[in-house]
């Protein structure tokens, strides 16, 4: 019995210790999430590690898309129109992660160039990164802060959503908190 009491008291002690530390946590279980590390290829055939996603302290947008997904292509085309302005204003970098598999992945490069997009494009041909990021549907967009932590995400795209996205990026660029 004594031992049980002792263990309960120690458990409580440890819990209170954890609670006290909660305020200091900004990552991990109690705070923001980092990007999981998965190896993918970019359009130039180079292997990249998703865990190294940073942009010199500036925000990053990660957008999951596919060549066969109309709203995805619509979202990236809409943003392309204003991407230059967004970059000048906030320093944001957009990474478009294609989840096309070997059926359509060969066409990604031709489509991205054909559309004249200036994004960095990663090829997630077997949805490994999609699974690691818990993406259900495309389009799914994440905003990362300067430290590469996920601060915001949204699924689906409709005309005008890009205005909401840049609002979030502006806040992140200024170091403000995002709801």
């Amino acid at each position: 019995m004594k031992k049980i009491l002792l263990s309960i008291s120690m458990l409580l002690m440890s819990l209170s210790l954890l609670m006290a530390q909660e305020n200091n946590q900004n990552t991990g279980i109690l705070g923001l999430k980092k990007i999981p590390a998965v190896e993918l290829k970019n359009l130039e055939g180079k292997t990249i590690n998703t865990g190294d996603t940073i942009n010199n302290g500036k925000p990053v947008i990660i957008s999951f898309w596919a060549t066969w997904c109309k709203p995805c292509v619509n979202e990236l085309t809409t943003i392309e129109d204003v991407y230059e302005d967004w970059q000048k204003e906030t320093g944001v970098k957009i990474i478009a992660v294609s989840i096309d598999d070997s059926k359509t992945s060969g066409n990604v490069k031709a489509l991205v160039n054909g559309k004249g997009w200036d994004y960095e494009v990663w090829l997630d041909v077997n949805s490994e990164f999609k699974r690691a990021m818990n993406v259900n549907l495309v389009p799914h967009t994440f905003v990362l802060n300067g430290k590469g932590e996920i601060v915001w995400q949204h699924t689906s795209f409709s005309q005008g959503s890009e205005l909401n996205l840049i609002e979030v990026v502006r806040k992140v660029a200024k170091g403000e908190k995002v709801e």
């Binding site: 440890s14 210790l17 954890l18 530390q21 200091n24 946590q25 990552t27 991990g28 279980i29 109690l30 705070g31 999430k33 980092k34 999981p36």
Partner: peptide, 9 residues
């Protein structure tokens, strides 16, 4: 512990 929790996701 703190480190453990910070790394836990």
């Amino acid at each position: 512990v703190e480190k453990f929790l910070q790394n836990s996701q």
